[in-house]
Design a protein around this nucleic acid. Sequence first.
DNA 1: ATTATATTTGCAACAAAGTTGCATTTACGA
DNA 2: TCGTAAATGCAACTTTGTTGCAAATATAAT
Lengths: 139, 139
Amino acid sequence: MKDALDILKSNHLSNTDSRREILQVFLRSRSALAHHDIEKKTSEKFDRVTVYRTLQTFIDKGIVHTIPTSDNAVKYALCREECSEGHHHDNHIHFVCDSCGNTTCLDETAIPQIKLPQGYRQEKVNVIVNGVCKTCKLN
Amino acid sequence: MKDALDILKSNHLSNTDSRREILQVFLRSRSALAHHDIEKKTSEKFDRVTVYRTLQTFIDKGIVHTIPTSDNAVKYALCREECSEGHHHDNHIHFVCDSCGNTTCLDETAIPQIKLPQGYRQEKVNVIVNGVCKTCKLN
DNA sequence: ATTATATTTGCAACAAAGTTGCATTTACGA
DNA sequence: TCGTAAATGCAACTTTGTTGCAAATATAAT
C-alpha cells in the first residue's frame, strides 16, 4: 500500500501539509468524499481555497477522479494505479448507497459496452448505480 | 404531442404562469436544461425561488428528471410518458456533448445490464456518456 | 546549515447557487 | 363572486466556488 509521501513524490508534487493530510484522508476512507467531507476530516485546518486547489492538483495529476451524483454533489475518490497525468482510466462503476449515503468505486465491476446511435462519438462513460450497499443490506 | 396544459391537468397541478411557461420551455427544447437556462429562457420573468420550487414539483410528479453531469451542474429534462408520481422510469442513457455542451436523452439507447458484486441491491442506474454529438461531428 | 527562488498557502472580497419564512397574490371550486 | 388553499415574490441568509495578492514555505543550490 502506497502512502501519501510516495504518491506525492512519484507525481513530482512538493510535500506540503495540506497535500499530505488530504491524501491521508483519502487513503483512510473507503468511500468517495465530497469537498465538505474533506474540510471536516482535516478539522477545517486548511482554507477552503487550499482544499479546492489541492483537489484540482490531484485531479490534474491523475491521483483522484470526480464522481457525479444526482444530487449535485461531486465526490472525489482515489484513482487506481493506472491513472496518470492528463489520462484517467476509471473504467469502473460507481455505487451510491441510498441508505448510508456512501459513494464507492466498484473496481471489479467493469463498465459495459454501450452502443450509441449512428453519428455519435463516445469519449467517456460514467455509470452511477443507486441502491443499497452490502453493509446496509445486512442491517 | 402533449402540450403544457395537458401535462399540468393530468398531474393535478394548477395552471399557473410559471408552471405553464417553464413546461413550454422544456417542450420546445431538444436538450436538457440547467436551472440557469430556464431562468434565461423565461426572460427572468420568475423569481429564482419560484423556478426552484416549480422544478421540484415537476420532479415529484415525475414530469422531469435530473441528470448528473461531471461538472457539477445538474440538468433537467422531460420524462417520457411512463413516468409517474414518485416513480421514474428513465431507462435511457444521457449524452453530454463536449463540443456544444448540450445534454440529451438518448431514448432509443437502453441501459445495459449491470452485474453488481454479491450483496448489493440495485435500484437505479445512471449512464452518462461524454463525447461529440451527431450535429457537432458534422461540422 | 544558509540562502535564493519558485511554489503554495491564507486572506479578503466576491460571485453564483440554493434555501427558508412570511406576507401578498392567484387559481379554482363552491 | 367569493372564500380558501395553493403558489408566488421578496428579503435575508447559507453554502459553494473563484480570483488576486501578500505572506509563508519547500526544495535545490551553495
